[in-house]
Design a protein around this nucleic acid. Structure first.
Lengths: 149, 149
DNA sequence: TACTTTTGTATCGCAAACGATATAAATACA
DNA sequence: TGTATTTATATCGTTTGCGATACAAAAGTA
């Protein structure tokens, strides 16, 4: 038995599991808004920065455009955003929030708060410090994986 | 602008990103073996513990059986494993490695080593300690999410 | 024993995620 | 100016992931 092939010795597997479990944890609240987890991420980008290109969305989410294009098309059908060809560069497609997409952020603002409650996480100083440390570790890992893989 | 809705303030997003980037990092090596990342995880389970049920696989990978059943069927077509109805309980399907599936572990044993090299991670004492600490944090998070979501 | 509930697996449909590939627009350059 | 290259997005096919549902076998119970 190779030690490095045991599931319990992997670092990759818990990341894979946590990622899916987080999506599940959001599910009920997102269902209430009629959106999926990747759609929620797209909305977060647009709420912070409206009128971006398909590539902008793909870059921020570290996804390929062939994933993002159909994702945005589904969101257009849902009436959350519009897709318009740029006039200055006709290759680009500008993604803009509709009123409906924009309004959704007020309801969505409760989601992170409710998730913390559901997980019984009280944001005291110690936990916030752990939170920040973990986030920094993850971002370092993202940089490492983006540049070397 | 709600602070809790900024992509940079999320802990969920880096987990989602890391998970996909890890899969990408494995891609080249797994392509050489003709398998995918979830298939690699199934093989790790079987190499450590042959003759398990569909539910056993689903439980260990924290996946639903409706994901695992087609996954195992594809692996059966690839000649990596067999699916046989249990004689003692006809509801159960026993998953067993074929010779081909079993042999694959010798090549696969190089994969975690090559990944470390690719990411320039030298397993010195400090890094091993960080590695273990992070793994424990992730496993606590998995327990939290499994029980409260 | 007869009926109900639970368990284990599978099927269906839809949304991701991505490699391979296509295509038009913009840019570089000979 | 004309041609090659790059850029931005889209299309297609396959695997994954999951909710809803189905169904037979096993277990529980009246």
């Amino acid at each position: 038995m190779y030690e490095q092939l045991k599931l319990d010795n992997q670092l990759c597997f818990p990341f894979y599991a946590v990622s899916r479990l987080i999506t599940r944890a959001y599910q009920a609240d997102l269902d209430a808004l009629g959106i999926t987890y990747p759609q929620y991420l797209v909305l977060m980008i647009l709420w912070e920065n409206n009128n971006v290109t398909v590539n902008d969305v793909a870059d921020k989410l570290i996804l390929n455009t062939n994933t993002v294009t159909p994702l945005l098309k589904r969101m257009e059908v849902l009436g959350l955003l519009t897709r318009k060809q740029s006039k200055t560069d006709q290759r680009k497609v500008i993604i803009s929030l509709t009123t409906k997409g924009n309004e959704l952020q007020h309801e969505a603002a409760q989601i992170p708060i409710r998730l913390m409650q559901k997980l019984n996480i009280e944001p005291n100083e110690n936990q916030l410090a752990d939170f920040l440390k973990l986030k920094n570790q993850l971002n370092s890992l993202i940089d490492l994986l983006k540049n070397n893989a």
